[in-house]
Amino acid sequence: MNRSLNEIEAHAKRAARGAGLSWGMAEETGRAARWLASHDLAGPALLADVLEKNDGLAHAQVAPVSLDGDWYARAGDLCPLAVGATLNDCAERLAPGLSIKARNVSCPLLIVPFAAWAAIHLRQPVRVSYENVRIETDGDGLWIDDPHQAINAGKAETVIFQRASTRTDPAQRPAVRGNVSCKNWARLGAFSERTFAPATEASRRLGAGSGLSDND
């Protein structure tokens, strides 16, 4: 279904929060889903995959153990949202000629929006490579090289981040609307539901403060 990008962002943010992410992580997750949807990429679907896979796991279990050396999780796979936020937080580490490697990452496409924000900050495109997929972004623009259609991989053993050269060939530009299937919308909705407080008699009566009559 065709949706506004604000709707997609708000829905994804609530879903991430419902799945147990911190508010700060949930905010960036919403932005990431919006960014991917604006490029007609499978952001909302992959986000639902990751939230279902990591449901109930603490950040410490799915985030890089340390910023130094290759990034890996304490046990199991890295969450792409935790990797993305961390990458953006220390974008300066993507010095010319240096790369960051992350090992065993779920749904690596979800990292690309964070790389895009790092690129805006660095004023230079950033490349994200995994499983024969090479994606470069300068923030808004996107160049995808995906000969084996592995962009939506559920997991990558290695994801490499590095600065890329400025490109002059046409980039894929973001659209102003996004499409999210009803099925994936509902999968995210199952998580966002958890953020809503069940109504009680007290909340109906007091929560919005009826006070004086509203009909005169």
Partner: peptide, 10 residues
């Protein structure tokens, strides 16, 4: 922030 995601928002 890597170890304190709960403060990311703030």
């Amino acid at each position: 922030l890597l170890t304190h995601p709960e403060h990311r928002h703030c």
